[in-house]
């Protein structure tokens, strides 16, 4: 059986302590700049805060993984190198990377620190994963949320590194690390700036008929009736009209959360080493609830007991959830 480590989000120092106390095996976090893919206002760590966080986590047997998982534009690579230097100095347990230049720098400069391949690298075949393992010594790949469990089981046999999969939280639809939708509408790049449908560009506009438009940078991403709850204008979760769908429809995906709690035993059996919970942007109480529930579930499964995960459903976005690609190819 795999270790079934629980990898938990730490958007702030308080969330980090919460996740550690709730039973995380590892937490992942980033600095307050473009070097990570959750570069949102009010989130992330100063170097001093990270130093304290590493001390707090290590004292309780929890690992700290530092996300350096964006793509530096030419001319700014030093920001990523310095972030890696700082992380190494503070004793993080692994770097989560996507860019080959960043991976190469860390592999050469800090050969003793583990490299994990971010989902932002979009490595979804044995060959792509082996490329990163053989060239940069990557020890673990975070898989894109596009594979079925039989495909993961097969993949496990063909790669020399550990597998981490997302099990809960935001359900990304586009291949991570290959999406410029936000930059197209707002001028801020997911890959280069770590920004996705930024709150600073969001506006909710009440229309004359009482309906509500949720807008991003002036584009109406969705419109809601008087009785509907207006959702956040994430571009890939919006409703649009197409020639065959003049009424408007979720062209990519509806606002829905990934929840693989029912599939945990199968994922463990398929050889998944680590389960990742998405949500560095979420509140402390959310982190506490989710981490506690999954801690109990994983412990139950390891002990051969039936896992109870009913509480998790209440925490999901819009109260709707999916098993996404993990359950069936029909998702595609």
């Amino acid at each position: 059986m795999s270790l079934a480590e629980l990898i938990c989000p730490a958007g702030t120092p308080a969330a980090l302590r919460t996740a550690v106390d709730a039973g995380a095996d590892a937490v992942y976090c980033g600095f307050q700049d473009a070097t990570n893919a959750r570069n949102f206002p009010g989130l992330n760590f100063t170097p001093d805060e990270l130093a304290e966080a590493v001390t707090y986590a290590h004292a309780r047997g929890t690992k700290v993984l530092l996300a350096l998982n964006t793509y530096p534009p030419a001319g700014k690579v030093d920001l990523w190198r310095h972030a890696a230097d700082t992380g190494a100095r503070l004793g993080v347990d692994a770097f989560i990377v996507a860019d080959m230049g960043v991976a190469d720098y860390i592999a050469r400069t800090y050969p003793g620190i583990r490299l994990h391949l971010s989902v932002q690298a979009a490595a979804s075949s044995p060959e792509a994963i082996r490329y990163y393992c053989e060239n940069f010594g990557v020890k673990r790949v975070v898989l894109p949320r596009i594979l079925t469990i039989p495909e993961i089981r097969q993949l496990r046999r063909e790669i020399p590194c550990e597998i981490e999969t997302f099990i809960f939280g935001n359900h990304g639809l586009m291949v991570e690390g290959r999406c410029s939708l936000t930059n197209y509408l707002t001028g801020q790049s997911t890959n280069m700036d770590g920004v996705c449908s930024p709150a600073s560009d969001v506006e909710y506009v009440r229309d004359a008929d009482g309906s509500m438009s949720s807008q991003l940078a002036g584009f109406t991403i969705d419109r809601f009736g008087v009785d509907e709850k207006a959702g956040y204008p994430t571009i890939c979760k919006g409703r649009y009209a197409a020639p065959h769908r003049p009424e408007g429809y979720y062209a990519f995906e509806e606002p829905i959360s990934l929840n693989l709690s029912r599939l945990l035993p199968e994922l463990i059996e398929a050889g998944v080493h680590a389960f990742k919970i998405e949500g560095r942007q979420r509140s402390k109480s959310y982190v506490r609830g989710v981490v506690r529930a999954f801690r109990a579930a994983v412990d139950d499964i390891k002990a051969g007991r039936e896992a109870n995960i009913a509480d998790l459903i209440a925490l999901t976005e819009g109260q709707k959830q999916t098993q996404g690609a993990f359950e069936t190819k029909k998702w595609r």
Binding site: Y71, A121, A123
Partner: peptide, 26 residues
């Protein structure tokens, strides 16, 4: 795609726009 880089090894090739060659280090 990195799968193509793996298969190609060190033989000459071009890097396409989906390969995310954003910077000098890469």
């Amino acid at each position: 795609n990195a799968a193509g880089l793996y298969a190609r090894g060190k033989r000459p090739h071009r890097i396409g726009p989906f390969m995310n060659a954003y910077n000098d280090a890469t």
